[in-house]
Amino acid sequence: MAAISGGKTYHHGDLRNALICAAVDLATEGGPERVVLREAARRVGVSPTAAYRHFDGRGELLRTVRTHAQRLLADAMERAAAREPGADDPALAAERRVAALCRGYVGFAVDQPGLYRAAFCAPRPAAPDEPAQERQAPDPELRAFTLIREALEALARTGTPRLGVRPASGAAAWSAVHGLSLLLLEGPLRRLSAQRRDAVVDTTLAMVVSGTRTP
């Protein structure tokens, strides 16, 4: 057990996970700027020395928080899609899934701005001697993109005649919802009322659905 100030001992069974949870809380409260290893250690109740046994510094901790935030974003998108009512028409069902995934993306950004910003922060690169399984693990940042791309491909397979998907349509759709999210968080659209914001989101998503298919 790791020693802490005051002669106490740390009784948690997984200090690394506790530090990650504390760091995620910090990001939730204030974005990636708030993620500091010493502060995470203070919240858990251990010394900085104990924390440094699990993370070599702020960069490694922030990369871990970013991964966690990216997963939460994709989870929010999938939950939004799961809540969307079904439709007998395959094309309509596919359109609804695309829109729901994108709406879940924007909704996560608006509801969790700190975590959203952390999901796309740029901490220092991994050290060359970092364990290979951590450096080579699939990037969860691409899961949000993959969900959108696959939904667009499914939409293209519906209808008669079948419509193709424009080249790089997934990236274009991702750019649209990501840019909209940033405008709602940090740009002039942050001043919109909830009703106006919903209208802008709906219009953007309609453009995403219609604009990514070839004639």
Rank of each mutant, 00 (worst) to 15 (best):
M1A: 08
A3W: 07
I4C: 00
I4W: 03
I4T: 00
G6S: 08
G7E: 00
K8S: 04
H11Q: 02
H12W: 08
H12D: 14
H12G: 15
D14S: 04
D14H: 14
D14K: 11
R16G: 06
L19Q: 02
I20V: 10
A23R: 00
V24W: 04
V24N: 02
D25G: 13
D25K: 12
L26N: 03
T28C: 06
G31K: 10
P32G: 04
E33V: 15
V35K: 10
E39D: 15
R42A: 07
R43F: 14
V44G: 07
V44K: 05
T49D: 01
T49W: 03
A50M: 07
A51I: 02
A51F: 05
R53M: 02
G57Y: 11
L61S: 01
L61P: 01
V65Y: 07
T67N: 11
T67R: 11
Q70M: 02
Q70P: 05
R71K: 15
L72G: 00
L72Y: 01
M77W: 09
E78C: 10
E78T: 03
R79L: 14
R79C: 07
A80D: 02
A81G: 08
A81P: 06
A82F: 05
R83M: 15
R83E: 15
E84P: 07
G86W: 10
G86N: 05
D89P: 02
P90G: 06
A91H: 13
L92S: 11
L92E: 15
A93N: 09
A93Y: 03
A94T: 13
A94L: 07
A94M: 04
V98W: 00
A99Q: 06
A100D: 00
L101D: 07
Y105D: 00
Y105G: 01
F108M: 03
F108G: 02
V110Q: 06
D111F: 02
D111H: 04
D111T: 10
D111V: 04
Q112T: 12
Q112K: 13
G114I: 11
L115N: 04
Y116A: 01
Y116L: 04
A118W: 09
A118F: 02
A119I: 03
A122R: 01
R124A: 15
A126G: 06
A126C: 04
A126K: 11
A127S: 14
P128G: 09
P128Q: 00
A132I: 13
Q136V: 11
P138W: 12
P140C: 13
L142S: 09
L142E: 11
L142G: 08
R143W: 12
A144Y: 07
A144M: 00
T146V: 14
I148N: 06
I148G: 12
R149P: 02
A151W: 09
L152D: 08
E153I: 13
E153G: 03
A156E: 08
R157P: 05
R157K: 01
P161W: 08
P161C: 02
R166V: 10
P167F: 12
P167R: 10
A171C: 11
A172P: 00
A172N: 12
H178M: 03
H178F: 12
G179A: 11
G179V: 12
S181F: 01
S181Y: 09
L184E: 06
L184R: 04
L185E: 05
R190E: 08
L192H: 09
S193F: 09
A194T: 10
R196Y: 06
R197K: 06
D198S: 07
V208C: 01
S210C: 15
S210F: 09
G211C: 13
T212F: 00
